Simulated scan of single mutants.
Amino acid sequence: MIRMIDLESMKDVLELLELQQLAYRVEATLIGFEEIPPLLDSPSTLRESNEAFLGYYLQTAEGGERLAGAIACKQTAKELQICRLMVHPDCFRRGIAAQLLTYVEQHTVPGMRIKVSTGTGNTPAVELYVKHGYEPVGMQLVAPGITLTQFQKIV
């Protein structure tokens, strides 16, 4: 169900890019800001991001699979940064984001700090992080009236 996304595969990158566009358009609407960086990505910028992407795949009725969610991370010696967490709008409220978050936490070195940020007005994402034990540690103004809230958790 959860596995690495092959950024060398154009098929996988295009599927990821489509998911990202759909998911982040919803966030853009929620927070009232259309210039969210993931909405500006291309196949090459995804490949050059130096992020590790994990996908959540659902089985289709035809016996194939479809990408229903994804999470992207970067790790340093001291912390893990969750750079993106997205779920296809058709799959909202099925626990996919929670499963991706839990998967990353379970595969993180114990004692490591995990950091993530989201639009302050993205109530579903804020509630997800708080529910999973993330604490708000800062807020950043990104445009007039638009803020990001930074969260962290030590696993």
Rank of each mutant, 00 (worst) to 15 (best):
I5T: 00
D6V: 09
L7A: 08
L7D: 02
E8R: 15
E8H: 15
M10F: 05
M10I: 08
K11N: 09
D12T: 04
E15T: 06
E18V: 02
E18H: 09
Q21E: 11
Q21V: 03
L22G: 06
R25I: 00
E27I: 09
E27W: 06
T29W: 07
T29K: 08
L30V: 05
F33D: 02
E34C: 03
E34L: 09
P37G: 13
P38L: 01
L39K: 15
L39R: 12
L40W: 03
D41R: 15
D41L: 15
D41G: 11
S42H: 14
T45C: 01
T45I: 08
T45D: 12
R47E: 13
R47V: 15
R47K: 10
E48R: 15
E48P: 05
E48K: 15
S49K: 06
L54C: 05
L54F: 15
G55M: 00
G55D: 00
Y56K: 12
T60S: 10
A61C: 01
G64M: 10
G64I: 09
G64P: 03
G64V: 04
E65W: 14
E65F: 15
L67R: 06
A68Y: 03
A68S: 00
A70D: 00
A70I: 00
A70N: 01
A70Y: 01
I71Y: 02
A72Q: 00
E79A: 13
L80A: 11
C83P: 03
C83D: 04
L85G: 07
L85D: 01
M86A: 15
V87L: 09
H88T: 05
H88G: 07
P89T: 09
D90I: 03
D90M: 11
R93N: 06
R93W: 13
R93V: 10
R93P: 10
G95D: 04
I96L: 03
A97I: 05
A97Y: 01
Q99C: 11
Q99Y: 06
L100Q: 01
L101F: 02
Y103V: 06
V104Q: 01
E105K: 11
E105S: 07
E105T: 12
E105V: 11
Q106T: 01
H107D: 03
T108I: 06
V109S: 05
V109A: 11
M112C: 12
R113T: 14
K115M: 12
K115Y: 08
V116F: 08
V116M: 04
S117T: 04
G119Q: 00
T120Q: 09
T120M: 14
T120F: 09
G121W: 02
N122L: 01
P124N: 07
A125W: 00
V126P: 04
E127D: 13
E127N: 14
E127G: 06
Y129M: 09
V130S: 04
V130E: 14
K131G: 14
H132S: 09
H132W: 07
E135T: 14
E135G: 08
V137I: 14
V137R: 13
G138V: 11
L141A: 14
V142S: 02
A143M: 08
P144K: 10
G145M: 08
I146Q: 04
I146T: 12
L148W: 13
Q150V: 05
V155Y: 14
